[in-house]
């Protein structure tokens, strides 16, 4: 792997008319850089066995969640798969709670009982991190149904990969979601590989937005390497949901630079392919726009980079120094009822 180029812009673009504020660009840059940098460290910590379990990195896909978070409203809800380290960061959770969760510590987002694949946070309506491939598709529609039934505002963003999109439950869900006009946005984080199997090896319909069209669901292909494109698509889809017009399917074309999980030798793709995608790196694109439009000085950028580095160090230190769970906590948070008979003594 060549060193990532996010420290400096990709190329010198000429000044352009921007549709987003300086503040928005700087927030995107900081959040996405934080996702990238913290996950690079997480990868190293994993192979040094600082924590166990599974580990699926989001590196390369940052624009998808960053663009979703910037376009959503506070009351909206989020549900995703097990590639979920970046979601809490995008939604404004301090990354130290996510790292502590990886370490299985008491201070973790899910009290150390979920690990890498199960990041939850009530305050920002992050309804998980789910390990069962595609299970969050019907669950996401279920959350949207609950909101509609109870008369709550709020849209649910339901993210899943291109592999999970092949689960049968997707079709039942799409049918009901359209039938009841549920306020849900289905987001395919299409990184082109279901573990090691490319989209074209699993289907004769490579354009995944076609799946929604058979239910007359508004469906679009989105450039997932551009945070602006993702933001715009999400904003439009949420408006439709808020107006009572029901769900939208977004086939967001992204790419992951790292393996499916930590034990993926990546023999299914060439190094050139990975490098080609790095040329349109989502974090570098944002930095490029900031620099070529003079939205910040070099020292402003250096400060953001330093802040990110400090946040990463602080988060890892917090996780390492946090206490382990007590044995009795094994029996807590299992059932809704406080004294469920089954787990009493």
């Amino acid at each position: 792997m060549s060193t990532t180029t996010i420290e400096k812009p990709l190329k010198n673009k000429s000044k352009e008319v921007l549709n987003f504020s300086k503040k928005q660009y700087l927030k995107w840059y900081k959040d996405m850089l934080l996702m990238r940098k913290i996950e690079e460290r997480i990868g190293h910590l994993y192979i040094q066995q600082k924590f166990g379990g599974f580990c699926h990195l989001y590196i390369g896909q940052e624009a998808v969640v960053a663009g979703t978070a910037s376009a959503c409203a506070k009351e909206d809800k989020h549900i995703t798969a097990y590639r979920d380290h970046a979601h809490p960061i995008a939604l404004g959770v301090h990354p130290k709670y996510m790292v502590a969760e990886l370490y299985g510590k008491k201070t973790g987002m899910s009290k150390g009982k979920g690990g890498s694949m199960h990041m939850f946070n009530k305050e920002v309506n992050l309804m998980g991190g789910h390990g069962i491939v595609g299970a969050q598709i019907p669950m996401g529609a279920g959350i949207a149904f609950a909101d509609q039934y109870k008369g709550n505002k709020g849209v649910t963003y339901c993210s899943f990969g291109d592999g999970a999109a092949r689960q049968g439950a997707l079709h039942e869900t799409f049918n009901m979601a359209m039938m009841w006009k549920l306020p849900v946005v289905f987001i395919i984080e299409n990184n082109n590989y279901a573990m090691g199997t490319s989209v074209k090896r699993t289907t004769n319909v490579e354009d995944m937005s076609e799946i929604g069209k058979s239910y007359h669901m508004p469906s679009f292909v989105v450039d997932g390497m551009s945070v602006e494109a993702v933001h715009n698509a999400i904003e439009e889809a949420s408006q439709r949901a808020r107006d009572g017009e029901g769900p939208t399917l977004l086939d967001i074309r992204t790419y992951r630079y790292k393996g499916h999980s930590m034990s993926d030798p990546q023999k299914y793709r060439t190094k050139d392919e990975v490098e080609d995608f790095k040329d349109k790196d989502p974090v570098s694109q944002v930095l490029d726009t900031i620099m070529s439009n003079k939205l910040a000085s070099e020292s402003d950028i250096k400060k953001i980079q330093q802040d990110v580095k400090d946040l990463v160090d602080e988060s890892i230190k917090f996780a390492e120094e946090s206490p382990e769970l007590e044995p009795h906590e094994l029996y807590e948070d299992v059932y809704m009822q406080k004294d469920y008979p089954f787990i009493k003594d």
């Binding site: 792997m1 060549s2 060193t3 690079e40 990868g43 190293h44 034990s263 030798p265 023999k267």
Partner: peptide, 22 residues
């Protein structure tokens, strides 16, 4: 050796993986 450079190939119980130095 620079960080991110390919150091060795390591055969695990599953596959042969490239190991980049950090």
């Amino acid at each position: 050796i620079e960080s991110g450079e390919l150091l060795a190939e390591i055969e695990t119980d599953k596959a042969t993986m490239e190991f980049e130095s950090f």
